[in-house]
Amino acid sequence: MNDIAQTASPHKDYAGSKLGMWLFLFTEILLFGGLFLVYSVYRSMYPQDFHAAAAGLSVVLGTVNTVILLTSSLTMALSISALRRGNSRRSVLLQSATIVLGLVFLVNKYFEWSGHIHEGLYPNAPELLTRSHGEILFYGLYYVMTGLHGIHVVVGLVLIGIMLTLTMRQRITGADYVKLENAGLYWHLVDLIWIYLFPLFYLIT
């Protein structure tokens, strides 16, 4: 290392960081898009079975989780505004609120899944295999799609947790916040996917 490299401030490329994050999010959209494609083809083949199977899901739980995720997106967005106005304490509080809401979402999901598993509605369960082909496909897609979404929630929570630590250590500040913004973008994408999952699984009439 020479002197120049040590004294120069590290190069930051704000626009590049954000563009990179968006490109990654595009691949995420296509990942879930593939699953939505499978869902729509099978639903068009077995509309009655999907209708019957969806009756087994709790609209109330689905709606509550929708409200929780939408609210967590709000607190995430507000945390960035707060930081940029120089109020890092408020930003830390709002990031913590986002994490708490994400955890509540996962707890609800846990109760929801264990309820279905108790009813014998899990992949390859003897009870599920007695049902029609379309219902088996519905529950398969339900577990894969909400499961993959759930993994994204966990990843998002870990990311926000890291951002929270960095904000508290003054490594993310009102002058350098692109990491927090990118974590926020990821979290909003998780919300975005749930916006489509909710009507497609819970609200089939």
Binding site: S73, L74, G184, H188, L189, D191, L192, I195
Partner: peptide, 8 residues
């Protein structure tokens, strides 16, 4: 709405 406002 999420893309336009929350995602900036």
């Amino acid at each position: 709405f999420v893309l336009w406002y929350f995602m900036h």
